[in-house]
Design a protein around this nucleic acid. Structure first.
Length: 193
DNA sequence: AAGTAATGCAACCGCCGAATG
DNA sequence: ACATTCGGCGGTTGCATTACT
């Protein structure tokens, strides 16, 4: 058993947990402005922070980075997230990569708190975006090509994911070889992204 | 005004793959 | 070849805020 790379419970140097204070934010910002995004595991000590490197990285990536957009998602962004999710599933970092100034955490939260409910209200299954139509061969081919563009396997052919449905309100992307393929309605993604 | 439920979001947890010794 | 470390990711939790009764 290898020990966790960052174990808050075991590391005696890590005293702070939970919400970051303004002072901690400032220390992190100052350090990164001065030294850049260097080794996260040694950063906390070097910057005088009582946090683990992982926590520092998360704080910087999701909140402090100067190029972050913040604020509400626009309709165009929402639309793009839905389309990308139909194509990529819960690969939030890939989806966020197509949305300048947005983080994977932000996209994931937005999906779980807004988009999922919206799709359910419209009678669309947010997990597979299906409205009970089979994917026509041409559309299937487009999907397959799109996945190749992102450097991904075509999961519709043989994927068995680890998440599953506990109840109808839980996130799931359960698919298996036995599952049928469903249509991705309105998936007019530009393949030249 | 007080209590409770629902919601949104920041942060944590645990796992994985790549890099390194 | 193997063990270890690290960065990164997705899932989940917990808390603050808001809405409702």
């Amino acid at each position: 058993m290898r020990k966790p790379s960052c174990d808050i419970k075991l590391d005696k140097n890590i005293k702070n947990k939970g919400v970051w204070s303004k002072q901690e934010d400032q220390k992190l910002i100052d350090y990164i402005n001065k030294h850049g995004e260097v080794c996260w595991s040694t950063l906390p000590q070097a910057a005088g922070l009582l946090r683990c490197g992982k926590s520092c990285r998360l704080r910087w990536m999701n909140y402090l980075r100067p190029d972050l957009k913040r604020g509400n998602f626009g309709e165009d962004e929402e639309d793009l997230i839905v389309k990308l999710h139909a194509l990529l599933g819960n690969r939030w970092s890939l989806i966020a990569g197509r949305l300048p100034g947005r983080t994977d955490n932000e996209v994931k939260n937005f999906w779980n708190s807004h988009i999922r409910k919206k799709l359910i209200r419209k009678g669309i299954d947010p997990n597979n975006h299906s409205v009970n139509h089979k994917i026509p061969p041409l559309q299937n081919q487009i999907m397959s090509n799109s996945l190749k563009y992102f450097g991904l396997k075509d999961i519709s052919k043989n994927q068995t994911t680890k998440t599953h449905v506990d109840n109808d309100d839980k996130v799931s992307n359960a698919t298996s070889d036995k599952d049928e393929s469903y249509a991705l309605l309105d998936l007019n993604l530009e393949l030249s992204l």
